[in-house]
Design a protein around this nucleic acid. Sequence first.
DNA 1: AGGATTTGGGTTAACGTTAACCCAAAGAGA
DNA 2: TCTCTTTGGGTTAACGTTAACCCAAATCCT
Lengths: 344, 344
Amino acid sequence: MSDSSVTLAHVARLAGVSIITVSKVLNNTGRISEATRSRVLNAANQLGYVANSAARSLRGRPTQILGMVIPELISPYFAEVARAAANSASRLGYDLALFTTSRDPERERERVGTLLGGLADGLIIVVPIGASGFLATLERVRAPVVLVNHFGAATHLPVVRADSFEGSVAAVRHLMDLGHRRIGFVGGAPHSSQAAERLRAYRECMRAADLWDENLVCSGDFTQVRGFEAGHQLLGLEQPPTAIFAASDLTAFGIIDAARARGLQVPRDLSVVGFDDIPAAAHAHPSLTTVAHPIADMAEAAVQLFAQIKAGQPVQDTLVEFPSSLVVRGSSGPAPKTRKGTAL
Amino acid sequence: MSDSSVTLAHVARLAGVSIITVSKVLNNTGRISEATRSRVLNAANQLGYVANSAARSLRGRPTQILGMVIPELISPYFAEVARAAANSASRLGYDLALFTTSRDPERERERVGTLLGGLADGLIIVVPIGASGFLATLERVRAPVVLVNHFGAATHLPVVRADSFEGSVAAVRHLMDLGHRRIGFVGGAPHSSQAAERLRAYRECMRAADLWDENLVCSGDFTQVRGFEAGHQLLGLEQPPTAIFAASDLTAFGIIDAARARGLQVPRDLSVVGFDDIPAAAHAHPSLTTVAHPIADMAEAAVQLFAQIKAGQPVQDTLVEFPSSLVVRGSSGPAPKTRKGTAL
DNA sequence: AGGATTTGGGTTAACGTTAACCCAAAGAGA
DNA sequence: TCTCTTTGGGTTAACGTTAACCCAAATCCT
C-alpha cells in the first residue's frame, strides 16, 4: 500500500486529477473544491505519500530542517545543548539534524557545505570552527547561520554564548574566601575557547592573589576519566592543593573519585568546584559546587535567532551573552588547617 | 569570492566551458583533457563550489548521508550509540544525520518520511518504534533500514541488538552468590524493551530463588536523578535490600549517592550493580560492577549492515545479537552478616 | 590518402515539486 | 442575451544536477 517512492504523479492518477492539483491540495494553495480535496487527501493517505524534500528544496521551498554542527555528543554538555536546541526547534516546527565533526576542520567544512546545499534551512554551529577563513565563507552564505559559544575572531554572524570568565572568577574567589591558598586547576579540551576562558580567569585570580604556581595546572579534556588522572596527579604533588577548580562537572567528579581512592574526604580534605551544573551535579554525594551555564537558554536563543533571520529580519553583529553563576553546594568547604599551614 | 548558491553554471562560466564539463570533472566521469580539468578545478575552488545535494539526490545520486533516529541524547547510552555509529559511518564515507524523537510516534513517522524523501541514503532506527503499523511501512521502503535494539514484533527488516537478559541473569546470580537475599531492582524507561528484558531477568531469578518481593522493585527512567530517589525509597523500607541491581549505570550512581547520603558504605553495607558499562563505570570510586553492553559493536554492525544492503546484497530476516557480560568491580561485595540474618 | 577509431567536449532530457499563468465552465448582473 | 466575475482546475517552465547520446576534430591504420 505504501512505498518510499510514491510521487505526486501516483497520487494524481489514483485521485483522477492532475499533478498540480494534488500539490495544491497538499500545500493548501489555489482554489480546490471540497470534493476534489477529500478525494486527493484520501489517495495520498492510501498511498502513504511523503513529499520528496530534495525536490521541494530544489524548488526553493524550505525543508523545515535546521542543521546543527557540534563537536561531539559524549559530554553531557553538548548533549544537553543538542537536546535543548531540538526542543526549541521542534516548537517552531523545525526538525534538528545533528552532525558531529570530531573537531576535524576539513569534515566540518564539508558538512556545512552539504547542509547548506539544499538540505537545511539554516545552521547552528557550536564552535570551535576550524580555520578562520571558514568564518568568512560562512558570512557569505545566504541561509541563516548562528554561532554558539564563539569567542574567536570578530564576525558579522550572530553569536550566542555563555560567559565563562565571570563565573570562573567567582568560583576561584569562593575557594579563596574559604581560606584555600593552594588551588589546583584541571582544564578542558585544548582548542575549546570556553576552556581557555576558564583557565584565563583562574590564572588572573591566582596571579592577582600571588598564589600562582604552574604545577597546580593540569591539562584536561572535560572528561571524567581525565579528571580522575589529573586528580591523582595534583594530589600526588609534594605540596598538594587543598582545592581544585575543574573546567567541567564530569572532570570534577573524576577528581572526587581520585580523592576518594587516595583516602581523602570531600570537602573535608579537598574542596572541588566544577563547571556546567549538569543535572547530576545537584544529586551527587556530596552535591557539587559548580558554575551554572545556561545551556538551555543558549540553545533557545540560538534557535530563536535563526527563526528571526529566516523570517526576514536581518540581524548582524548580534551578540547574545548569558551570564554564568556560581552555585555553592556540598563539595566545597573551609581549607583544612594543617594543609593551610603547609602552604603558607 | 564564495557564496552558498554557487552552481555548476557559475563555475562553468568562469572556466569557459559548459556545465556538463564541470560536472564531469567534479565526478571524474567522461573524457576531459588535463588542461580543462585543472582550469575547472581552479574555478570551482575559487568560487567555493559545493554541490547541491538536493539536486543530486533528485537525480538519483546517493547523498552519502546516513540517517539515524534515536529517542534521546541525554543518556550516555544513546550518546555513545550515536558516536560509535558516526565513527563507523565516517569510515565508509557517510555522514550521520541524527534526529531525536522524544519518543513521540507521530514525529518519528514524519521524520522517517523526511529522511527517506531524498535526504538520506538509508536509516538506522534505534527503537522504540511507536506503532507496529509503522514497521510494516518501513518494510516497504526502498532504502536500507536497520533496526537497533528491536525486541518487539517480528519483522523482515535487519535487526541488530544486544542481549539484556543473560547479562541481567548473571548480575542477579552474582549478587545471590555473594549471599544477598534481599536484592532490589530499579528499572529503566517504561517503554524501553531493554528495560523490560532486564526486569524480566530479575523477576525470573528472584522467583526461581523464592526471593521475590514486589516492594523491592522500583520504576525508573535510566537517569541518575531517578536512581537517587529510588535508592532512598528502597533503603527506607522496613526491610531494606542489601543489594540493588539498577537498569543503567547512571541509575546505579544515583543509588550509590543515596546510600552515601544515608551514611551507608558501598559495598560494605550495600552492593550495587549497574548496566551498560559506560566509561565512567570503571573510573568511579568505588568502581562499578556492571553489565557491559557492546554499544560500539552494535553501532558498527548496524552501519555495516546498511552498507551491505546498499551495495546490493539484500539482507532479510537478519538478526545480529551481541551478548552482554557481567563485569565485576568494586561496588559489589559479600552480604553484610546482620542484614542477612534479618532477611532470612 | 581514405576510412576507422579515439579524444574532448557539448546537447537533450529527466528527477519531483511548485510558482506564475492560463483557460474553460458556471453563475451574476444589466 | 451579452459581458463580467468567480470557481475549479490544468499548462508551462524552472530549480541544479547528471545519464545517455551525439558530434566535430585529431589521430591512427593499411
